[in-house]
Design a protein around this nucleic acid. Sequence first.
DNA 1: ACATTTACTGTGTTTTTTACACTAACTCCG
DNA 2: CGGAGTTAGTGTAAAAAACACAGTAAATGT
Lengths: 229, 229
Amino acid sequence: MKEVLPQFNSTFSIDCVIFGFDGGDLKILLIERNNEPFKDWWALPGNLVGENESLDQSASRILNELTGLTDIYMEQYYTFGDVNRHPQGRVVSIAYYALLRLGGDKAVRPISSYAKQAHWVNINELPKLAFDHQQIYDKGLEKIKRRIKHQPIAFELLPEKFTLTQLQNVYELILGKKLDKRNFRKKMLSFGVLKDLDEKQKGVSFRAATLYRFDKRKYAKLFGKEISF
Amino acid sequence: MKEVLPQFNSTFSIDCVIFGFDGGDLKILLIERNNEPFKDWWALPGNLVGENESLDQSASRILNELTGLTDIYMEQYYTFGDVNRHPQGRVVSIAYYALLRLGGDKAVRPISSYAKQAHWVNINELPKLAFDHQQIYDKGLEKIKRRIKHQPIAFELLPEKFTLTQLQNVYELILGKKLDKRNFRKKMLSFGVLKDLDEKQKGVSFRAATLYRFDKRKYAKLFGKEISF
DNA sequence: ACATTTACTGTGTTTTTTACACTAACTCCG
DNA sequence: CGGAGTTAGTGTAAAAAACACAGTAAATGT
């Protein structure tokens, strides 16, 4: 029924920089490719976009296929379309990043067909990546660095209940630098979006810290005002 | 030689939000479509990406075909890929914005084949747009609003020599709100990236203002430091 | 009880942001 | 040439935000 649009041999794919935080390290999910080109290389998870899925849906599907998770925070951030970025033809790739919490029962055991294996890799120990994936990763990290300063995305990496020290760790890992503890806590609490749970950490050696929860309601009320985390 | 990648009937295009400033109003370039679908509707300039051009090249080409201009500041900002955004098939569209100065000898008389006509339209008087172009425009403006606060893109809209009042006008038009004159001037000058030309406006009624030039060298030296215009 | 580790707290200084109104310079016109 | 009209240009005080900085409190393990 539809008229055919002019076209040539081309296609598009999604690539995902999937960040996970396990309470200690910040990691991304990499796959070891099972096919040419770049067989046996490490690469960002990605796939072609299906005929009847939107870009956002496709990104969610890719993440779900690897991790089994749904409803994960994902954001499209850039599209890579150099003519020769894929050796087998023109592939334009739309990049997404995702943020999720690792560990516990959600431990995430990745399975997939086009990959020999998938691994969570510390972002400070990344191997050489296939295609232009290093560039895609770099740009993703850069975007997240900016975004974390203005939007409450750090909470996506943390369990529902978390301590201020954990929150600070997330910021320090993403920004790649140390922050002053007192100033950090003062500022975070001043936004009024953290709810003190009157509850302490359990199962830790040494002094237990107070647990907090991110209060989405209060955050929603702040909209319009510029808020800088 | 190349293996063929799996694919279906799909293609991708570039759409451009081309901002122009004529000293008074902020405008974008719109075309009146000559073909179905949305024949006779106003739309953002756009075209399919050629087989051997990168996305950036394609965006530059589209702008050049309409205006004859080259070396214009352009930035990719988002990719739109809903399944039904184009009635004739799957078209993923990569959006760019561009900033340029209008008027004088550069007056820009747009010509093109797929458009009946092209016009510069005040951003406060936009007509109904074809496809999802309103959404594409909205997101573009939003991105520029953010960017103008951190990067020296306002200068792209101004002639080489400009007055502080003109610069402030650009900010006010993009941000959509009035700014305090004294605070604005103080802040702009404090960055040290404006060179006072010891030269006055000519041909104006009433008192002539001092002309400035943006000093790219000094700006380059600031890199790394967060600078907020 | 002591050693160890992490949680938690406050103040003073500096910098940035905001609010605010008048004089100076130039042009046009009569 | 003088006065009316219009835009250019300037400073200060108050408030808010950012920054630098170190010791005590609480819990654990031995």
